[in-house]
């Protein structure tokens, strides 16, 4: 008998990641196009309807649209996928495979975050060629998008695990996505007492960091950076706990 046990962390990550990307073979249109079309369309619509808005508003729209793209993939689509896995009991198969469930939720969030990258790239092009904004690129940006994907993806996973079925997971995911759409594109000063709600959204800290990296808007990077990391860590911890929970 050959030794049977458990793969190394690297192999486990690669195999699990491949399993997620294999979904694109059949479902690349909803995953890639839907998460790109709506946010890019909003930027396009605002360009045609209100082209002369101030620069800071354009920056708000661009960063908000990028986060919207990320939230469609990681919150709406991932929550529906998780709810489907739960309904069909395929999630039970994952639970019995020799994989770390912490790694499973990390891989799911990372993969679904990556599905939104074509949309984010499209919005970057719009900001450069339509709005003529100079977008600064930094390696920090990649780290930030991965962390944002983890934070939002963990929220999507939690919604999928707690929702009674796939339809309701989609509904809850869409409601949260709408909150991100409305609240993150508005200037903080206009929210009044609702500003506190922003702290519950997985997009708030990444939004500030994005503006800082891409448009050099002055912020406290350590504060918002710590917020982004903390959100992702807590979200992943909670989603791993829920995935592990037996019947």
């Amino acid at each position: 008998m050959n030794s049977s046990g458990r793969a190394s962390w690297g192999t486990m990550f690669r195999v699990l990641m491949r399993m997620q990307f294999a979904r694109l073979r059949r479902n690349w249109r909803p995953y890639v196009i839907v998460s790109a079309v709506m946010p890019a369309g909003i930027v396009l619509l605002l360009y045609f309807t209100n082209h002369h808005m101030p620069r800071f508003q354009k920056e708000d729209i661009i960063t908000g649209a990028m986060l919207l793209s990320e939230s469609i993939a990681t919150i709406v689509m991932l929550s529906q996928y998780i709810a489907w896995l739960k309904e069909t009991r395929a999630l039970d198969h994952y639970r019995t495979l020799p994989v770390s469930l912490e790694m499973l939720v990390t891989v799911l969030a990372t993969a679904y975050g990556l599905f939104a990258w074509p949309g984010i790239a499209l919005i970057t092009l719009e900001s450069r060629y339509l709005e003529h904004l100079s977008v600064h690129f930094s390696l920090w940006l990649i780290a930030l998008w991965v962390l944002t994907g983890l934070g939002m993806g963990s929220v999507g996973t939690i919604i999928g695990l707690l929702a009674p079925d796939e339809g309701l997971a989609g509904l809850f995911g869409n409601l949260l996505m709408m909150a991100i759409l409305f609240l993150d594109m508005l200037p903080l000063s206009s929210l009044g007492p609702w500003t506190a709600v922003l702290w519950l959204l997985p997009s708030t800290a990444p939004l500030h960091l994005l503006k800082s990296i891409m448009f050099h808007v002055p912020i406290h990077p350590l504060l918002w950076g710590a917020g982004t990391i903390l959100y992702a860590a807590c979200g992943l911890g909670l989603s791993a706990y829920l995935v592990k929970k037996p019947a």
């Binding site: 491949r18 399993m19 294999a22 979904r23 073979r25 059949r26 896995l85 069909t88 009991r89 395929a90 999630l91 039970d92 198969h93 994952y94 019995t96 495979l97």
Partner: peptide, 12 residues
């Protein structure tokens, strides 16, 4: 474990 329900490997 071989469950009765579908496997998580459906996309492969």
């Amino acid at each position: 474990y071989l469950p009765q329900h579908p496997l998580a490997l459906g996309d492969l």
